[in-house]
């Protein structure tokens, strides 16, 4: 994979570059999904990432909670029936303590589902070599294209500079490009 990206000092210039890149998709035969943004803080309020807002996570958590509650009931009811204690005519499966176990496992179900959903949705952990620049954690906003057609490299570089990029860099996962371009690892 070869990518080109610009490092922008603020959200306004990054937004301009993003708009320009999106507008230039058809001209450069770019896949809009190949446009990459990275920042050291959430920029949803600045108008970035609105297309990422659709997620099933808030629905999966209650589903996990329901499964957890079911497991809680199954575990405690199965246990109480497997080793019935003398209850003096009271029910073997007592609902009050079973309710407490169900509640705790319901919450545990919601928590574990959230963790799993987060891991799947973000694709973390991922230790492969991917497009990234440590300057992002210094406050710079990275806007770039990850699947680059080398024919339009110069024009894209110019476009990024025009919109206020402080630096434009290239990134490649191929070894042969290491000497040809400025490679950031």
């Amino acid at each position: 994979m070869i990518a080109i990206y610009g490092l922008f000092p603020d959200a306004n210039s990054a937004r301009r570059a993003l708009t320009a890149l999106r507008a230039a998709c058809s001209r450069f035969h770019l896949n809009p999904k190949a446009i990459v943004i990275m920042s050291s803080e959430p920029l949803e309020e600045e108008g970035f990432g609105w297309e990422e807002e659709r997620t099933l996570m808030p629905w999966l958590a209650p589903l996990g909670a329901l499964v957890g509650a079911g497991v809680g009931y199954a575990l405690s009811a199965f246990t109480q029936r497997s080793y019935p204690l003398p209850t003096g005519g009271m029910p073997i499966v007592a609902m009050w303590p079973t309710g407490i176990i169900m509640y705790e496992l319901m919450m545990l179900g919601a928590i574990l589902t959230t963790i799993v959903a987060f891991v799947i949705a973000t694709g973390l952990p991922n230790y492969k070599k991917r497009l990234y620049d440590p300057e992002v954690t210094n406050g710079k906003i990275l806007v770039g294209v990850s699947e680059l057609d080398s024919a339009c490299r110069a024009e894209l570089e110019q476009l990024l500079y025009q919109d206020g990029a402080e630096q434009v860099k290239e990134f490649s996962t191929y070894r042969k490009y290491k000497n040809r371009f400025q490679v950031t690892t």
Binding site: P58, A121, Y127
Partner: peptide
């Protein structure tokens, strides 16, 4: 760091997860 890069998707999912956790 688990390979965190700070993409909008990562930030959004993190904030959703944090909201769910805060409620839970």
């Amino acid at each position: 760091a688990l390979g965190w890069r700070g993409t909008p998707r990562e930030w959004h999912r993190l904030e959703v997860a944090m909201r769910i956790m805060a409620v839970t």
